[in-house]
Design a protein around this nucleic acid. Structure first.
Lengths: 341, 341
DNA sequence: CTGAAAGCGCTTACAG
DNA sequence: CTGAAAGCGCTTACAG
């Protein structure tokens, strides 16, 4: 049988309350008593039953999530994932508060971070805009002892406890390799479409993509990055202009959101001139574009995984527990028309 | 505050014991009492605290896993994942028993299934050999009321409760699409290397692969499937023979295990004649081959996910709870040299 | 610095 | 068919 606190208590010759004090490193125990309990713990190989402890504590974790009020499918998916997490709130002993913040707005995000911290939640997760304002606010949160996790897009420097998102450099490299090989030796221009170079995930994808294209695919020539603000209408205009301005675009990498606009623009490009297209995030739009052959591949991050990972990490940090890095790694999904879920 | 059994009891005007009986659909409650309790439950929106219930029950789930004693990296990974699951056994209230069975041996597997069932575990998971013997044994297990899950490779027909593994047809199609596009318009032969057509995962990958190659890539010509028994030495011999017999192999799909042998054989093929290669399962061998450029892509299934999913499903079935299909879907990872974890 | 007792939300004999 | 009481493994006031 697994040993319990009772076994520890009787073996160490102390009361349950004292065992609990030692186990939870609470003060007010003599060194000698502490030693006796520690000895019993290691001799019996005691492992605390976390579920029972939580039941007794009646502990809940108020968690705050700051999400850009950007209306794209990915952010909607993130909200959905948060709602689903909220439904399991009882079992998980969490209470999720969702705060909307304007997209790509460093000042607003910094303010929102400080406001969230003022409420003293058990942890905060936020989609970072990578700017000094935000870094300063994040540093305040961390030094106030509130666990802080970046979600989807990271913050440069070390002003947070954990990043729950994909390796965006790897995503950019993967996109480049696939795109380069799909082009299959033809020569021409490659268009790159981002949301904003202000967010680190887009910047990292972009740089890694460009670096692999430049080094591995001599026949391909990169056009300057277009910033579509993740807005379908802006994206549509930008892409249309690109195809008017260049007759030799053989491939396009859409590393941000707003793909509805991209699809509309591409549909107006004569079939024989359509480029190889790789985009991010599996949504209704990108799924349809894969199926119709308009897109060739879609890289995806699972919003549900990211949210669940952020929650696990915040809870662990709140309890001072270690996180299992390997388990929290968010993988890059690659979808072709052939492996759509 | 979340309502508890106490709230239900007082609202319905009955005792805790009766509430428990109704909640767990145990017999010996009058229809009228049952109704009162059900009413209180729905009025208060009561949701049972599973952790507390498990604590009270002291319930543990003895689970039996039948794993082929095949010595390849994937099966080793599966064992490792089972060991890790075993370490969380206390928290999860499971006790995992691992049984070795000879690989690709239907009769031995059928016997092992019956033996495992005789011990009345809370559930059984097994890597299926798709044969009538096995199906018959599986049907017996299921009709004995023991939850049964196939792992990695499925059983034809409905003689199990759940399949914890990837969509192998999708994997085969994906391999074909990638491989066809990577070949990039060249013409030639495509070699296919399987473990055994006796296991359904290999057969499904193979058929789906062949079908996409045939329909989408007119310049590619499929060679007959070679069966390497997932054994590196057999694989090495088969592949060497293939390259002696054919001078125009432009691509190779290795859909089983034994890739150490494949690597050895490919290294002897002159660099300029080396084919596009897509293999399965990320191991030390396939990772190295990706990095060195010998392989072009590796499709992977995460053994850890499969094991954890199988455990969740077996526990749910044991408790008569529904499983969330979407959450249990095992995804196909696609690795290039650019996105290795 | 230490302990006895009650309680977290559920389940289980046992008695009636 | 129904209920009172004890218990799962831990934590928390409270008293000393």
């Amino acid at each position: 049988m697994k040993p319990t606190v009772h076994d520890i208590a009787s073996r160490a010759g102390v009361s349950l309350a004292t065992v609990d004090r030692v186990l939870n490193r609470r003060p007010g125990v003599s060194a000698r008593t502490r030693e006796k309990v520690d000895l019993a713990v290691s001799e019996l190989g005691f492992v605390r039953d976390v579920a029972a402890a939580n039941l007794a504590k009646g502990r809940t974790y108020p968690l705050t999530f700051l999400i850009p009020s950007n209306d794209n499918s990915f952010m909607r998916g993130l909200r959905l994932a948060l709602d689903e997490a909220g439904e399991r709130a009882g079992v998980e002993r969490i209470a999720i508060r969702l705060v909307d913040v304007p997209a790509f707005d460093a000042a607003a995000l910094a303010t929102a971070l400080r406001d969230a911290a003022a409420e003293q939640p058990a942890g905060i997760a936020f989609v970072a805009v990578d700017a000094p304002d935000v870094a300063a606010a994040a540093a305040e949160v961390v030094s106030a002892g509130i666990p802080l996790v970046t979600l989807v897009s990271d913050l440069s420097g070390a002003e947070r406890d954990h990043y729950a998102g994909i390796d965006n450099a790897a995503a950019g490299r993967t996109a480049a390799s696939l795109l380069g090989r799909f082009v299959g030796g033809r020569r021409g221009k490659v268009a790159v479409l981002a949301g904003s170079m202000l967010v680190r995930d887009h910047r990292e994808r972009c740089e890694a993509f460009a670096s692999v294209i430049t080094s591995d695919f001599a026949g391909l020539d990169l056009l300057p990055v277009s910033e579509g603000r993740d807005d379908p209408d802006v994206v549509e205009r930008l892409v249309s202009a690109l195809f008017v301005g260049h007759s030799d675009i053989v491939a396009l990498y859409s590393l941000g959101a707003g793909n509805r606009g991209l699809v509309r623009a591409l549909e107006r490009v004569p079939r024989e001139n359509r480029p190889v297209v790789i985009a991010h995030e599996l949504t209704e739009t990108t799924r349809g574009a894969l199926q119709s052959g308009l897109f060739d591949a879609v890289l995806n991050q699972d919003a549900g995984h990211e949210v669940r990972s952020a929650i696990r990490v915040l809870k662990a940090k709140a309890d001072g527990l270690p996180v299992v890095a390997a388990q929290e790694r968010i993988r890059i999904d690659i979808f072709l028309k052939d492996n759509l879920p």
